[in-house]
Computed example of a mutant assay.
Amino acid sequence: MNFWQRIFRLKKKQTQVNATGRLNAIKMAKKTGTLVLVAPATGQLRPIKESHDEHYQAANGIMLIPNGGNLMLPVSGIVSESTTEKLMITDGLDQSVTMSLVGQGEAARLARYSAGQQLHAGDVVGTASQKILAQSTEAVRIYVVWSEHQVPKVRFGSVYAGQNIWQSEDDFNDKQADD
């Protein structure tokens, strides 16, 4: 395969990820190693600056208020630290990404993983109780924080678990041109 064929294939893969829903984006990330960012749960995705937790307001990341159900890993990577409330991984760009649960301990929890274990975007890594979350709108908040680089552009609002939320530069520029 020559140089130009490789370039056009990579562009085609990224276009496919942008155009697909949850299952296809996750499948492509696992098979091809294409970087994707998926919603960690079904709920409301918000900018992290809207957080009531002072510790996270200045962080580089996103916040999600889950409705319950499975919790999914937002990016692929290698586990560096794992507890029932926090999962830290190193992604494909050598960035440290931390997924944290804040709120009522019995409402949600993450599975524990060994350091060095490889996980993929969309892997189920925990659960959240729909019964407890129905009683309080913000019983649990999920934070996804990048320690070294800026946060990718994402689509805020209602999301479902595993949905590709990464907004490519082309999508972002097209949206700004429409406004």
Rank of each mutant, 00 (worst) to 15 (best):
T98W: 08
T83F: 06
T84V: 06
V79F: 11
Q104A: 08
V79W: 03
V102Y: 05
V102E: 02
S96D: 07
T83R: 02
E81A: 12
P74I: 06
S76N: 01
L87A: 10
S96Q: 12
I78R: 02
S100K: 02
S96L: 05
L73V: 06
T84L: 03
S100G: 00
L73N: 11
V97M: 01
L93A: 11
D91P: 12
G77S: 14
I78K: 06
L87P: 10
A107L: 01
T98F: 09
S80P: 07
I78Q: 02
G77L: 07
E106V: 06
E106H: 05
Q104C: 02
L87E: 12
G77T: 15
G105K: 10
G77K: 05
E85T: 15
L73E: 11
T90A: 08
S76K: 01
E106G: 00
L87S: 10
M72P: 08
T84M: 04
G103P: 09
E106K: 01
R109A: 11
T83M: 03
L93P: 00
Q104P: 00
E85G: 14
Q104N: 03
A107N: 01
S96T: 13
L87W: 10
I89N: 03
V97S: 07
I89K: 03
T90M: 03
S100I: 09
M72Q: 14
L73W: 03
S76R: 00
L87H: 13
L101A: 06
G103Q: 02
G105S: 12
V102F: 12
E85S: 15
Q95G: 15
G77D: 13
L101M: 05
K86P: 01
L87I: 11
E81R: 15
A108G: 11
M99W: 10
L73K: 01
S80C: 13
M88G: 11
M72H: 13
S96N: 12
E81L: 10
K86T: 13
I89C: 00
A108D: 05
M88N: 12
I89Q: 01
P74Q: 04
P74T: 04
S100E: 06
M72C: 13
E81K: 15
S76F: 01
M99F: 13
G105R: 05
V102H: 05
S100M: 06
R109V: 04
G92N: 15
T98M: 11
